[in-house]
Amino acid sequence: MSRPSCPRCARPLDHCLCALIPSLDSRARVLILQHPSETRHALNTARLAALGLRNAELLVGERFDDLEERLARPGYRSCLLFPGEQAQPLAGFAEQGVEPLLLVVPDGTWRKARKLLYLNPSLEALPRVALPEGLTSRYRLRKAPMEGALSTLEAVVAALEIVEAPRRYDALLAPFEALIDGQIAAMGEETFRRNHGE
Rank of each mutant, 00 (worst) to 15 (best):
P12N: 03
H35N: 01
V163F: 07
A159H: 06
E99L: 15
L53N: 05
G188L: 12
A165W: 09
A159T: 06
H15T: 15
P7M: 03
L31I: 05
R47Y: 07
R29V: 00
M146C: 09
P4W: 06
P7C: 04
L119E: 14
L123R: 12
L117E: 10
E95G: 12
M146H: 15
E68G: 12
L179W: 02
G108Q: 04
E68C: 04
H15D: 14
E99G: 00
R29C: 01
G108M: 02
V163Q: 11
T45P: 07
T191N: 08
L160K: 06
D181I: 07
A42K: 13
S5I: 15
A149K: 10
F64R: 09
R193H: 08
R128Y: 01
P100G: 07
A94D: 11
T136P: 03
A46L: 09
L141C: 11
F82W: 10
L135F: 03
E147C: 00
V157G: 07
Y118M: 08
V30Q: 09
M187F: 04
F82A: 04
L172A: 08
E99C: 07
C9N: 06
G148D: 10
L20S: 12
Q183S: 13
Q183K: 15
A50S: 13
F93D: 11
L33N: 11
H15E: 15
P145I: 00
N44V: 03
A178P: 02
I32D: 01
S122C: 12
R193Y: 01
G84L: 07
L67T: 07
P100I: 03
L81F: 05
A174V: 06
L43D: 00
D107I: 04
E189K: 14
L81P: 08
C9A: 04
H15A: 15
L141W: 11
D14R: 14
L101V: 08
R40Q: 11
Y118Q: 15
L117N: 09
C16P: 13
L20Y: 04
L80W: 09
S23K: 10
L102I: 03
M187N: 05
R140V: 03
S23C: 14
H41P: 02
L117K: 11
A28H: 14
L126K: 11
T191H: 10
L90W: 02
L153W: 03
L51F: 09
L58G: 02
G52P: 04
R194I: 02
D170R: 15
V60G: 04
E190H: 14
A28F: 06
E133F: 01
D170T: 14
R3Q: 13
S137H: 12
G134K: 13
R8K: 07
F82E: 12
F176D: 00
L102E: 08
L20N: 02
A186V: 01
H41T: 06
A130Y: 00
L33Y: 11
R40S: 13
Q183L: 15
E95H: 11
F93L: 12
A186G: 00
E85W: 00
R142G: 07
A56C: 03
N55T: 09
